[in-house]
Amino acid sequence: MRLVVIAIGRLKQGPERELAERYRERFDDIGRKLGFRGLEVHEIPESRARDAASRMADEAAAMSAATPAKSVLVALDEHGDNIDSGSFARHLGRWRDDQVANTIFLIGGADGLSPELRRMAKLRMAFGSATWPHQMVRVMLLEQVYRAATILAGHPYHRA
Rank of each mutant, 00 (worst) to 15 (best):
A49N: 01
L92M: 07
Q13M: 07
R50N: 10
S85Y: 02
S47N: 12
L142A: 04
E59W: 06
T150S: 15
R147S: 09
K122Y: 03
L19I: 14
G38Q: 05
D111H: 07
Q99M: 14
L11V: 06
Y146I: 09
A130F: 10
D29I: 13
Y157T: 07
M125R: 00
E78F: 02
D84G: 15
R17V: 04
R55A: 13
A61H: 11
I151H: 09
A52M: 10
A101G: 11
K70V: 10
G93N: 06
L11Q: 11
G9K: 08
G80D: 00
G14L: 05
D28A: 15
Q135F: 10
F36T: 11
T150D: 12
F36A: 11
D98M: 13
V74D: 03
S129R: 15
A57I: 05
F36I: 09
Y157K: 11
A126F: 00
P45I: 07
N102H: 14
M125T: 08
L117F: 00
P15F: 13
G128Y: 09
I6K: 08
T67V: 05
A130D: 08
S71E: 02
L92G: 03
V139D: 09
R37Y: 11
V72Y: 03
W132T: 06
A101R: 14
V145E: 03
L106I: 00
E143D: 08
H42D: 04
I104C: 00
E25H: 12
A62F: 02
Q144A: 06
L76P: 02
A52R: 15
E116F: 01
I151R: 03
R118N: 00
L76E: 01
A101Q: 14
G109P: 08
R50S: 10
L141F: 06
A65H: 11
R2S: 15
G86N: 13
W95E: 07
F27K: 11
A65K: 14
R50A: 13
R138T: 01
G31K: 12
F27I: 12
G80S: 03
Q99T: 14
G93L: 10
A61S: 13
A52Y: 07
V100W: 05
G109Q: 05
N82E: 13
L142T: 02
E46H: 13
I151T: 06
R118E: 04
R55D: 05
L73G: 07
L73V: 09
G35W: 08
S85E: 05
A101F: 06
H91T: 04
G93V: 09
